[in-house]
Simulated scan of single mutants.
Amino acid sequence: MAYWLFKSEPFKFSWDNLKAIGDKGQEWDGVRNYAARNNMRAMKLGDKGFFYHSNEGLAVVGICEVSALAHPDSTADVPTWECVDVRSVCDMPIPVTLEKVKNTPELANMALVKLSRLSVQPVTEEEYRLVCRMGGLDNPPLSP
């Protein structure tokens, strides 16, 4: 099982934007970081991820899933850049703030804390389950 965290500035593309798109999902385009691109290349269909509002809000606000495997990013001028498509799965009933994550000792090694600038990050299953519990999801949707 694999889990991820997708960061987006809400004034550019918010959780509400992704929910409004529905099941067809949205290309997670515009990523120009090799580590983030490689994370997307490693994703499988149905992998779950946190949707994280960066810069404004600084919180996990929803759960999304990979709906299309890595493919050329339509916004890129060169084929180097790839992305996946994601679709919304469910709201996080209680947004889990970066402050709460940083104040939880079990999450001290989470990429969100250690690699704060990386826009697409891996999340361990233990981290995923704990953040979901912190957000009020006792039975979270799991990756296949």
Rank of each mutant, 00 (worst) to 15 (best):
G62W: 04
N109C: 15
P79F: 08
E99Q: 15
V84K: 05
I94V: 09
I63D: 03
R87Q: 02
P105Q: 06
V96W: 03
T75M: 10
D73C: 05
V89I: 02
C90H: 10
C64I: 05
G62F: 11
E99Y: 12
T75Q: 13
R87T: 07
V66W: 09
I63G: 04
T80V: 14
M92G: 08
V61I: 06
H71M: 06
E82F: 05
E99I: 13
D77C: 15
T80C: 13
V66G: 02
S74P: 03
H71T: 10
P95G: 03
D85V: 07
D77F: 12
I63L: 08
T75H: 12
V96Y: 08
K100P: 15
C90G: 15
A70K: 00
S88A: 09
A108T: 08
P72V: 10
C64V: 11
L98H: 00
W81H: 11
A68I: 12
P95K: 09
A68M: 08
L69D: 02
P72T: 15
V84D: 04
D77P: 15
T75V: 11
V84S: 04
D77H: 14
H71D: 07
A70Y: 10
T97D: 07
K102T: 13
A70P: 03
D85I: 00
N103P: 13
L69N: 11
S74T: 13
P72Y: 00
V61R: 07
D85R: 14
V86T: 03
C90I: 02
T75F: 05
A70E: 00
T97H: 06
C83K: 09
V66R: 02
S67L: 01
V66L: 12
V60L: 11
P72Q: 01
